[in-house]
């Protein structure tokens, strides 16, 4: 559905969705904070926190930013960005930790 040509009825339907998403985001926030009080093993804490955050982010991007029905030009741009983002996030694991720790003695 093109966001440029929407009938009044469609916009109203959208606004109802926005409030539902708002509710979902609040619930997810509560969940992620609650998990943090449990002090899970670090690995699982990270995984859970990232899963919840990604879910929230997807909801915002898909519904508030209308990415669920966007044009190809924008998908292409974001697709390219996503790939390059992955390269960036790989950097920490490219550092030779065993050697780096040996360089300087504290």
């Amino acid at each position: 559905m093109a966001s440029e040509h929407m009938t009044l009825e469609e916009v109203k339907k959208h606004t109802r969705t926005y409030w539902v998403i708002f509710g979902a985001l609040l619930v997810l926030t509560a969940i992620t904070v609650a998990i943090s009080y449990v002090h899970l093993p670090f690995f699982w804490a990270v995984v859970l926190a990232l899963v919840v955050a990604s879910t929230k982010a997807s909801l915002v991007a898909l519904y508030f930013m209308h990415l669920i029905s966007e044009k190809t030009a924008i998908y292409l741009t974001l697709g390219l960005t996503a790939v390059l983002f992955v390269f960036l996030i790989v950097i920490p694991w490219m550092i030779p930790w065993a050697e780096v720790r040996g360089w300087f003695v504290s």
């Binding site: 550092i95 780096v100 360089w103 300087f104 003695v105 504290s106």
Partner: peptide
């Protein structure tokens, strides 16, 4: 990085960073 020495003196910073 931790333990950085500049001109023979320990550099006053918290350290723990990474030049790489």
């Amino acid at each position: 990085p931790s333990g950085l020495v500049v001109s023979g003196e320990k550099w006053a910073a918290a350290g723990g960073g990474n030049p790489l």
